[in-house]
Computed example of a mutant assay.
Amino acid sequence: MREVRVRLGRIRPADVRAPQDELMNGRGFVLLQDAPVADLSEQQCEILALGLGRHVGRTVPQAPEKYLQHVRDLGVDPSGSTSYSYQHSGRLGYHADPNDIVALLCIRPAKSGGLSCIVSSVAVHNEVVRTRPDLAEVLYRPWWRDRRSGDGPDSFYQSPVYTTDSAGRLSTSYGPDYMRSALRGAHVPPFSPAQREAMELLDRLNSDRRFMLTMDLRPGDMQFLNNHVTLHSRTEYVDHPEPERRRDLIRLWLSTDQNRQAPS
């Protein structure tokens, strides 16, 4: 995989709109660079992220009335029933967010680690179909997921890993961290042998360098990913001790006019 980069310099709307075709009809990911975050306040960085994102799609709330999220280490227990992946510094499994596009504007990177890794879920799907069609069939069936909204039954739901729309376009909804944590649900059955084997295969292929790319996001970088055709991950990171230097990224969820069902 090869990065598609666009340098902003002095930001013009045309510079931001240009990657849309690459996102929706090309590789499915774009990296904008040189957004002027260094001399901005936190609120100004939020306004900048929202403004840039609005040229790509419509913002989707990530919580009631919350249209952006800071990705920071809050020291939460990753296994907690109400903790989320963006709130700790550990490694994340490859996953898709529940919307068309996810965008990350880097304000400050970590002291070390925290690399952004992306993989072509279409290429991985095709490899699964080519080498293990029996497991591909399993991945088109519903799997239990965890919303991490507590311990009640509403925290758990089912959806397939792979779906296709009426035009035959593939969407991938994978999230091993939340699929494994769904097993805490009293009514959720354990993985079948075929499901375990399918997850092991996906986790191996998602880390295969034929299909993946690593980005070291720096201040002013803004990454856009199409959740239908890519998965993303993050390596474990170590932060600076000073609060004002700690890792901070602004996350947006965006919808487009592609009329596709986003991963659930």
Rank of each mutant, 00 (worst) to 15 (best):
V71Q: 05
R247S: 03
Q195Y: 01
S83N: 14
K111A: 12
V76S: 07
S121V: 00
T256H: 02
R58M: 12
S41A: 09
F29Y: 13
D216E: 11
L104C: 06
L105E: 08
D146Y: 08
C45V: 04
T230N: 13
V56C: 06
V6M: 06
P190F: 09
R184Y: 05
L104W: 15
W144T: 03
R218E: 11
M222P: 05
L74C: 12
S207I: 00
L183K: 05
L201R: 04
E137G: 01
G168C: 11
E137F: 10
S264K: 10
L23H: 12
R246D: 09
P133G: 12
R12Y: 02
L105S: 06
V129M: 14
M24R: 12
V16S: 01
L115D: 15
R141C: 08
S155M: 10
K66E: 13
E236V: 06
V129S: 07
R12W: 08
P64I: 03
C45D: 12
D203G: 00
N126G: 09
V71M: 09
L170T: 13
V124T: 00
D177C: 00
L74S: 11
D39K: 08
A103V: 12
L254A: 02
P13E: 12
I11M: 13
G26F: 10
A167P: 00
L115N: 08
S159D: 11
M215D: 02
Y174W: 13
G26P: 10
S116W: 05
L48R: 11
M212Q: 13
R132W: 00
S207W: 07
M215C: 10
L48Q: 12
Q195M: 07
E137A: 15
R180W: 13
K66R: 14
T172V: 15
S155E: 08
S155N: 14
R108C: 02
Q20I: 10
S85P: 02
T131R: 13
S120P: 05
R247K: 06
Y84F: 15
I107Q: 04
P219K: 08
V30T: 15
P241V: 07
Y84K: 15
A38L: 06
A182R: 04
W143K: 07
H125D: 10
S264R: 15
S159Q: 08
L139C: 03
G93W: 13
S116A: 08
N226T: 09
R196F: 03
S116D: 10
E65W: 12
R247A: 06
D21Y: 04
L202A: 01
L50D: 12
L135H: 02
G26Y: 04
R145G: 03
H70S: 12
A18P: 02
A14W: 06
A96P: 05
D203A: 07
S81E: 14
D100C: 05
S255F: 01
R147Y: 03
V161K: 09
T214E: 14
S41T: 15
V124P: 01
H70P: 07
V37P: 08
A182H: 07
W144P: 03
G51D: 14
R2Q: 09
A182K: 06
D248N: 15
R12S: 11
R72I: 15
W143V: 05
I107D: 04
